[in-house]
Design a protein around this nucleic acid. Structure first.
Lengths: 205, 205
DNA sequence: ATATTAACCGGACCATAGTCCGTTTAGCAT
DNA sequence: ATGCTAAACGGACTATGGTCCGGTTAATAT
C-alpha cells in the first residue's frame, strides 16, 4: 500500500533536503532501540531523556536533534502502530474499512480506537503533551477527516467538521484510560456507549 | 446559598483539623494577591512558582505548602469563577438552571461552559495538567453528575454515566480553545454544534 | 590522498517544578 | 511574662526537559 506515504505520521523533511548522514542514521537507530527497551521495561512515563541518551551511548543534544522533544520521540515510537491502525480504517476489511455502511464504520472506528488507546495509552499521553501535538498532528487530522467523511456519508450535513471534532474528543486517550483504570469501566461498555452515541447522532428524530 | 459549601471546589480539610495559623493565612492572601496580579499582567502560562514566591515575599516552600503544586494554585485561582458557574446551573434561572426542559438545560450548559472556557482557558489548562486533576476533581465530577442527571431526565436510561462523560469530553477546554484560536471556529458555531449534539442524543430515531 | 565544509556530536548549561530540613514563630498553658 | 510545641518558614537542593556552542566527522570535490 504505497499510498501510505501520502499520510505521513510525522511531517516529512522537505523534498530537496540532503540525505541523513550515516552516523546520524546509526544514532537514530540506537536511540529508537534503547527507547523501545526502556519503555518495555519501565513504561513510557518513566523514560527520561537523560537515561535514554545514556543508554543509547550518545549525548543529550543528539536525542533532541533527532526527535525535537519528548513528544516527538513518543510520536516516533507510536508511528508504526498508528500507521497500522490507519491502514485498517482506510484500506482494511469492513466494518472498519470501506464497504460497510457509515454507521457501522463509525461504530467500528470507535471500538478499534478504544482498544488502540488502551494498548498505547502511555505513549499517546507522552506524545500529546501540548494541544498542538494532540490536535494538529497528521494522525489526529486524519482521524478527524475520517469521522467527518463518515458523518457526511451518513447524511449529516450541518457542520460535520465540528461534530467530528466532538467525536474525536469522546475518544480522548486520557479520558478513556481514566475511565478504565480509575473508574473500572470496561472497554466493552465504552464501545457500546460509543455505538449508541454515533447511532443517535446520525439517526435524528 | 449555603448549600454551596457542600460542593467544594477543592477537597476541604478534615473536620477536626486545627485552624490555620495567622501567619499562614496572611501568606496565603499575599500569594493569591500576587498570583492574580501576575496572571493579569503576563497571563497564567507565564506564571512561575519562583516568581510568585518572590513577588509575594515568601519562600518557595511556602508556595507549595499552600497549594500543593502549580495545578492546585490554578484551581484556587479558578475557584470563585467555578463556584459562580456552578451556582448558575444548579440554582440559577432557566434555561441554565432548573425549570427548563432537560434538552434546553443541556444546550444552555454547553453554551455557558464554552464561554466560561474561553474566558478562563489558561487557568483551566494549568489546573488540568494531569488526568487526575482534570477528571476526578470536584468541579469536573459535579459537571459530570449534572449532565448525567439531565440525560436521565430526558429519558436516556442506557448508560448515561458514560454518555455524560463523552459530553464532558466534547467540552474539553484545550479542544475548545484550539478550535477557536487555531481554527477560527466561532463560539456560536461551537454552541450550535453542541446543541445539535445533545438534541440528537436525547431524541433518538 | 588531501582539503573543504556542512552536518553532526556531546556535554555543559539553563529554566522551572517540586522536595527537604534546619530554623523561626504563633498560639497556648502555666 | 515565660516556656513549650506543633506548625510554618525559606532557601538550598534535586530532577528533568530543553538549549547552546566549540569541537569532530562524514561526504564530496580536487
Amino acid at each position: 500500500m504505497f499510498l501510505v506515504s501520502l499520510i505521513p505520521i510525522r511531517p516529512e523533511v522537505p523534498f530537496g533536503a540532503p540525505a541523513e548522514r550515516s552516523d546520524a542514521a546509526r544514532n537514530r537507530e540506537r536511540l529508537l532501540q534503547a527507547a523501545r527497551e526502556l519503555v518495555a521495561e519501565y513504561g513510557a512515563e518513566a523514560l527520561t531523556m537523560d537515561a535514554l541518551a545514556c543508554k543509547a551511548g550518545v549525548g543529550k543534544g543528539t536525542v533532541f536533534r533527532r526527535f525535537g522533544n519528548r513528544a516527538g520521540l513518543m510520536m516516533t515510537l507510536l508511528s508504526d502502530a498508528e500507521a497500522d491502525f490507519q491502514q485498517q480504517f482506510i484500506f482494511g476489511p469492513p466494518p472498519l474499512g470501506p464497504g460497510a455502511p457509515p454507521l457501522e464504520r463509525l461504530a467500528a472506528y470507535g471500538e478499534g480506537r478504544i482498544y488502540f488507546v488502551l494498548e498505547y495509552g502511555e505513549l499517546l499521553k507522552g506524545a500529546g503533551v501540548s494541544p498542538r501535538n494532540r490536535f494538529d498532528v497528521p494522525p489526529a487530522m486524519l482521524a478527524h477527516r475520517h469521522l467527518e467523511l463518515l458523518l457526511r456519508e451518513a447524511g449529516m450535513d450541518e457542520d460535520p467538521w465540528v461534530m467530528a471534532m466532538s467525536l474525536c474528543s469522546a475518544l480522548d486517550p486520557e479520558r478513556i484510560v481514566n475511565d478504565v483504570r480509575v473508574h473500572g469501566i470496561s472497554p466493552k461498555r465504552l464501545a457500546a456507549s460509543w455505538r449508541q452515541l454515533v447511532t443517535r447522532i446520525i439517526n435524528p428524530a
